[in-house]
Design a binder for these strands. Structure first.
Lengths: 217, 217, 217, 217
DNA sequence: AATGAATGAGGATTCATTCAT
DNA sequence: AATGAATGAATCCTCATTCAT
C-alpha cells in the first residue's frame, strides 16, 4: 500500500562477501594479537565497515572467531583429504608427500589460528569443540589411514596407528608455534625444512620393518 | 566481658612469603584462564591479600607473569640438567630416561605456563625472551648434548644433533598442549604413555645405525 | 491500559550538542575544583551522559580540558578584538574602554579557567601552549597596539609598548585570581571597581606626556 | 627492672631538623608539580626517610603543605618588614627599594608556593586562610603604609592607599606566575627587570602630585 | 542493511594513610 | 622515633555490545 513501491537500497555495496571480508580482517588480527587483545573496532576498521555492522553478521566476538576457524581451516583439510585420496604410490612416499603438504600449511593462516585456539580453548570450549570436529578428527583419521595402509602393505612394521598420529604431527605443531610465537623473539634458529627432512627420515626409519632397515622410501 | 575482646590484627606482616604466595596464586589463575582473563583482583584474593599488595611486590601484571614464568620453570630445568649430568649408561637408555623425566614435567605447572607463554609471546615479547633464555636454550643444549654423545659413542647414526632436538621434544609439546587445551573439550582420546613409548621406539630406531637396526636400547 | 506503556528511549542521539554540553559541565567543575580533583564521572553526570560517552568526544581528561580552554577563551578574545578594531576616539578613552571590557571578563568563566591553566601549566605543557597561542599572544598584540597608537598620536609619552602590556594587564590578573581563589577565604576586602578606576587613573597619568600632566583622558 | 637500663636509641639521627628537611623536600616538589601531583612517597624519598616517617611529623598532606607555606613565607615577610621599618629617605625612593626587594622574592620559593596556594585555595580553604594571615595582611599593611607615608609627606597626590596596594603588587604577581607557569612553555619573552623599571616609573608618575609632574623620585 | 551514538561493566593502577614491629 | 608492609578508596580508561535512526 505504501507508494514507495521501488525497493531501492539505501546503501551502496550490499555485497554478499561482507562476511568473508570481516572474517579475513578478523583472521589477520586474531593471528597477530590473540583473541582478547583484538578489538572489534579494529576488525571493523580493517574491513572498512562500522563496528555495529560486525554485529549484523556475527552475534558476538566468539561467533566471529568461530567463523574464522571454520573458514580458515576447512579448505585446507579438504585439500589434504583430496590430495591423499587417490594416491597409489608406496606408503613411505605417500607419507613424505603428506608431510610436504602439511609443511605448506605452516605458511597458511591455519597455523596462526591454531595458536589462538590452543590459547583460548579454556575460555571458549565451543571453540575447542569446533576445532576438534573440523580439524582434529579429520586429520587424525587421515594420518591414521596412511599408517594403517603402510602396515597392511607390509611397508611399515606393525605398530598401533593411533599412537603414531601424534608422532607424525607433533613436529609440525612445534614448527607452527615456533614460527608464530617464539621465533621473532628468541635468538635460537630453527631450519624448518631441515627439521622436516630429518623428521621424515627418522620417522620412516623408525617405522621400517627390521628386515628392510637398509631401504629408504 | 566485652564481646569484642579479640584484638586480632587486621593483617600480618609476611614479606618473606608473600611473593611466593602471590606467584602461586597467579600461576593457578594464569594457567586456568590465560593472561588477559586473569584479574589481579582474583590473584590478590587467592593469596589473601588486597589488590594493592600485589603492587607492593610486582610493578604490574606483566612483571607478575614474568615472575611466575621464572619461578615455575627454573627448578624444573635445573632438575633436568642435574639428572642428566652424571649419567654414565648407554645413550639410548639416557634418552629414554630423559623422555621419562620430561613426561613428568607434563604434569607440572610448567606445561600450563608454556601454553600461556606461547599465546602471549606476541603481546609481550619480553616474556618470549625470558622463556627462550630460561628454558629453550638450556633444554636445547641439553638434548643436543645427548644426541651428540650418542653419535660420538657410535650408538646413533650420524645426524645433525641440532635438527634432532625439535624432533625429540615435539611430542612432549603436543602432549602438554593437548592436556591443557584440547583434551577436556574434544572426544578424541590420547594415551599419553603409549604415545611416549611409541615415540621412544620410533626415535631410537630412527637414530640407530643401519647395522644395529635389530638392536633396541 | 498497560502501565508500562511509555517506551521512552534509553538515551537520545544528540551529537550536535553533546560536546558543548560536556565542555560546559567540565568548565564548571574544573573551575570549582581544579583539574586533578575533577572526576570525569562528575563531568559525565553533570552533562547527563555516561562516563563512556565523554570518551566518545574527548580522548582523555587532558583533551577535554583543552577543549574547555579553547571554547571558553576564544569568543572572549574575539570580542575584545572586535570591540577595539573600529574604535576611533582618543587613546586614553580607548584604554579605559578596554579596561572596562576586561573588567567584564573577570566575571566570565575565563578567569576561572585562567586559574586552572596557571596551576596546571607545569603538568600539561600543551595547555600552556594553547593558552599562550589563543590568549596571550592575541591579547598582548592588542594591548601593545593600543599603547603604540597612543604614542603615535602624541597622547602618551614615549615608552616601550611591550613593557607596558604586563602593567596594563596585571591588575586584572590579580583581581581575577583574587575573586576565584582568595576572596572567599580571606577577610581582606578588595573593591574591584575602585581598584580598576585607580588603575586607569594611575596608568594614564603615568603614561601622560609631561606637558599634558594636568589633562586626564 | 629491665636490665637494659641504658636507654640507647635505636635510630641513628634523631635530628631536630627532620621537619625542616621534610618541608624543604616538600617545597621543591609542590613547587614543581603542584599539590595533587606531588606524592608523599617522593617527598619522603627526597628527604631520605620512609613514607611513614612523614606522618610522625605531619598529620597529613595538607598539614605538610601548611608547614611549607609557613616556613617559606614568614622569613621573607619578616625581612621585608625589617628592611622597610627604619627607612628614612623619600617615599618614592622607598617605594623603589620595596619593589627591588619584592623583585628578589620572585626568585625565592615563595613565588612557587604562591602559585600552588592560588591553585588549591578552593580545595583547601585553610590554606588560603593561612596565606591571608601570614602574607597578605602583613604585605598589605606594609605597602599601604608606604603609600600613606608618601601622601602625608606630600610626595604623592592624595589617593586611597588601600586601592593602591593591588596596583603596586600586581605586576609582581604577574611576573611570579609568569616565571613559574607560562614562561617555560610560551614563546613570548618578558624582560622582567625592564617591566619592573617601567612599573616603578609609571607608578611614581601616576602617583605624583600634578605640580610635581616633572620631578621623578 | 548500515551505522553513529551511547553505555554498562569492568579492570589496572595509584596513593594517602594506617598498622605492626 | 622509625619504618616496612599492607590496604581502602578512589579514578581513569577500555571495549563489547546495544540502540535509534
Amino acid at each position: 500500500m505504501t507508494p514507495t513501491s521501488t525497493p531501492r537500497p539505501r546503501w551502496q555495496r550490499r555485497s554478499e562477501d561482507r562476511p568473508a571480508e570481516l572474517v579475513a580482517a578478523a583472521l589477520a588480527l586474531f593471528a597477530e594479537r590473540g583473541f582478547a587483545r583484538t578489538r572489534l573496532a579494529d576488525v571493523a576498521a580493517r574491513a572498512h565497515v562500522s563496528k555495529a555492522t560486525v554485529y549484523v553478521y556475527f552475534a558476538n566476538k566468539e561467533r566471529l572467531f568461530e567463523a574464522v576457524v571454520r573458514e580458515t581451516v576447512t579448505p585446507n583439510v579438504d585439500r589434504a583429504e583430496a590430495l591423499i585420496r587417490g594416491y597409489d604410490g608406496s606408503t613411505p612416499a605417500l607419507l613424505r608427500t603428506l608431510l610436504l603438504l602439511f609443511d605448506g600449511l605452516l605458511d597458511s593462516p591455519m597455523a596462526a589460528v591454531l595458536k589462538v585456539v590452543l590459547a583460548e580453548a579454556g575460555n571458549f570450549p565451543e571453540l575447542a569443540r569446533v576445532w576438534g570436529e573440523l580439524v582434529l578428527q579429520r586429520m587424525f583419521a587421515l594420518v591414521q589411514g596412511v599408517i594403517a595402509r603402510g602396515i597392511e602393505r607390509k611397508e611399515f612394521r606393525v605398530v598401533n596407528p593411533a599412537e603414531m598420529v601424534p608422532l607424525v604431527m607433533s613436529p609440525l605443531l612445534l614448527l607452527g608455534l615456533w614460527k608464530h610465537s617464539l621465533a621473532p623473539h628468541v635468538p635460537v634458529v630453527l631450519d624448518r625444512h631441515a627439521v622436516l627432512a630429518a623428521h621424515a627420515d627418522v620417522l620412516l626409519r623408525g617405522l621400517a620393518r627390521p628386515e628392510d632397515a637398509h631401504v629408504q622410501g
